[in-house]
Structures are given as C-alpha cells and as structure tokens.
Computed example of a mutant assay.
Amino acid sequence: MEVVILPGNRQIGKLAADAVEALLRRKPNAVLGLATGSSPLPVYDELAVRHERDGLDFSAAHAFALDEYVGLVPGHPESYREVIGREFTSRVNILPENVHTPDGSAADIPAECRAYEDRMRAVGGVDLQILGVGTDGHIGFNEPGSSLASRTRIKTLIEQTRRDNARFFTSLADVPHHVVTQGLGTILEARHVVLIATGAQKAPAVRDFVEGPVSAVCPASVLQFHPHASILVDEAAASSLKLADFYRHTHDHKPSWQGL
C-alpha cells in the first residue's frame, strides 16, 4: 500500500488521472472501475479535460461501476448509471455499450450479481479501480461487517450511509435501503486500486484502514492485502496518520520512472 499525501483535490485529480492516462496509452482497451460520490470528481474532471485538450482516447475502453441502488426506476437521476454518465462517461468518447452498471431493477438480483461478475471476467477483469471511502471505512457499499472475500451481491445500507447520501435526494426517506455492490473479494481482483480520500471527516477512516488491523469492522482495511493499492489523501484526511512523515518522505524520493 502506497500512501501519497498531497495539498488538495487538484493535485490528487492530476496524479490519479496520470495513472489512468498511462494505462490507456499502453493498453487502449483497458478496463476501468468507476466509483461515484464526491471523491473521484477531480479525477473525472481532469480526464475529461485531457480527452478534450489532448485527445486522450477511451473508445476501446470498458468501464464497470462499483455499485447501484436497488429499486430506483430506470433513468432516475440518482441511479449510479445516470450519475456516472453525467460526471464522466458522457464527457469522453467511451462507447455507451462499454459502460456497465449492475441492474438494480432486475427481477432476479442474485442472477444479475453473477452475470455482472461474468461480464467483468469476459473483458479480462478490471485494470484500474477508482475508489472512495466512507466515514465508517466502507468501500463500494461494503458496509462494516462485510466478508473480506465477498463477491458482487445485494447489501443493506446502514443508516449512517443513508444519511450521508441523503443530500443527493429530496429527503432521507427517498434513499433506498438496498444496493448491489461489488464485493471486497471482487475489488481485490483489480490489478491497481486508486483510493481517494479528502477532508478531516475522513481522517479516522484513513487512519483505521491504512494503519489499523485488517478487520471486517473497517472494510477498506482489506486493501492492505492488495499488491498495488495507491491511497491518495489531502492533508486533512492524513491528519491522524502516525507515519505521515514517512509517507511524504517515500513519495518525495520515489524513482521518477516508477509512476503511481
């Protein structure tokens, strides 16, 4: 696990976009894993700029969303298919048929979960997965208590997560109770994981999953087992890390050829 502490969102967005761009230039048909929420927005903004300005090409790429609400009608503005389209995929030249999200309105949710995993395998698996982290340490919608070996499945949201997401809906009552999410075991199969956390409210979760024990109580801690996990945080999110100075020293003296 590499922890990179940067001044703010702009620098984080540029560094994560560098990793995506390098991947696409060496592997045009790369498979990207996309998260929603506020954390990845600087990355998506930077990638859209590079597509428009520099011709960064997404035409052969595939993208898989981390999760989707269960029970929202197709086309609902807060469904993650719609959110990812607004925030990112409609701003670059990725083919609509290459953007995949779980179907939260499927009649047979367990079958849809299995099919979603099959679709990822069929294109070779995720090359680079973008993640955020919740204030309770969840990644995707793998809430505390999730199996560290879990696969794509239906999950019940805890009330804190529903409250955190209520700002995107008219009221808390409109936030669904269930989601389909990639499991922790699924996420671990991505070849490179880039997790972004900003703001002081994320500092306890960052401390717990980076420097604490691996535990289902803090689902993101499973990334300690990942061979290529890049954790990009701002100063506020890094404020509780005991080894912050070491992480800064390591990044400052990293070989220039190594990349993220």
Score class of each variant (00 low, 15 high):
Val222Tyr: 05
Cys113Lys: 11
Ser39Pro: 12
Asp208Trp: 01
Ala229Asn: 02
Ile84Trp: 00
Gly134Met: 11
Leu23Pro: 00
Val70Ser: 08
Leu260Ile: 12
Lys254Ile: 05
Gly145Met: 07
Ala106Pro: 01
Ile196Val: 15
Val3Pro: 09
Ile187Phe: 13
Ala122Asn: 00
Trp257Tyr: 14
Leu6Ser: 10
Asp234Ile: 08
Ser230Leu: 14
Ala48Glu: 00
Leu66Ser: 06
Arg191Lys: 15
Val233Phe: 10
Asp234Trp: 07
Ala22Val: 03
Ala111His: 01
Glu235Phe: 09
Ala17Cys: 03
Arg119Met: 07
Leu41Gly: 02
Ile196Cys: 08
Asp174Val: 00
Tyr247Lys: 08
Glu189Thr: 05
Val206His: 11
Lys14Arg: 14
Val4Tyr: 04
Gly13Lys: 04
Ser171Gly: 10
Arg50Ala: 07
Ala173Gly: 14
Leu223Val: 01
Ala107Tyr: 06
Gly37Thr: 04
Asn29Gly: 12
Lys14Cys: 04
Asp103Ala: 13
Ala166Leu: 00
Val217Asp: 15
Arg91Asp: 04
Leu188Trp: 02
Pro144Gln: 10
Gly183Leu: 08
Asp164Arg: 01
Gly259Tyr: 08
Gly199Ile: 11
His253Asp: 03
Gly8Lys: 11
Arg114Ile: 13
Leu72Glu: 06
Pro176Gln: 13
Val210Asp: 03
Asp164Tyr: 00
Val210Pro: 05
Pro204Tyr: 02
Phe209Val: 05
Met1Ser: 12
His138Phe: 08
Gly125Met: 03
Thr135Lys: 09
Lys242Ala: 13
Ser105Asp: 09
Pro227Leu: 05
Leu24Arg: 07
Arg10Thr: 08
Asn165Ala: 14
Cys218Thr: 14
Thr36Glu: 08
Pro28Ile: 10
Tyr44Pro: 05
Ala111Leu: 11
Pro77Gln: 07
Thr152Asn: 02
